[in-house]
C-alpha cells in the first residue's frame, strides 16, 4: 500500500476532513481515540494480515510509528 493511500484510509477511519502527515503526533489529533484504534486494528488485519495489540498502538506516538508497525507493507 502506498503511503498516501494509508493516510487516506486513516482519514476515513477518523472521519476527518483535514489532511494527515506522517509526522503528526497521535495525541494531538482529536480523533485518536478508542474508536480509531479499533479501526486501525481492523485495517491492519484486513490489509496486511497483521494482528496489532492495544499495547502496540498505545506505544505509538506518531503516524510514522503506525506505518512502522505495518512491517514495510506501506511504501512511499
Amino acid at each position: 500500500m502506498k503511503k498516501s493511500d494509508f493516510l487516506d484510509e486513516l482519514m476515513e477511519i477518523m472521519q476527518r476532513d483535514e489532511p494527515l502527515d506522517p509526522s503528526d503526533e497521535l495525541d494531538s489529533l482529536g480523533e485518536w481515540d478508542s474508536m480509531t484504534v479499533l479501526g486501525v486494528i481492523s485495517m491492519f488485519d484486513l490489509e496486511f494480515g497483521i494482528t496489532l495489540t492495544i499495547d502496540q498502538l498505545k506505544a505509538a506516538k506518531t503516524i510514522q510509528d503506525l506505518i512502522h508497525l505495518s512491517n514495510d507493507n506501506v511504501s512511499n
Binding site: S34, V37, L38, I41, S42, D45, T51, I54, L57
Partner: peptide
C-alpha cells in the same frame, strides 16, 4: 489510564481485545 471510572463491583471490558476476538 483512559480516564474511565469504575469499582470492582462494576463490569470491566477490554474493548480492543474483544473487538480483535470478534473479527477473528
Amino acid at each position: 489510564d483512559d480516564g474511565n471510572w469504575r469499582s470492582k463491583n462494576n463490569l470491566v471490558m477490554s474493548g480492543g481485545d474483544v473487538f480483535n476476538f470478534s473479527i477473528k
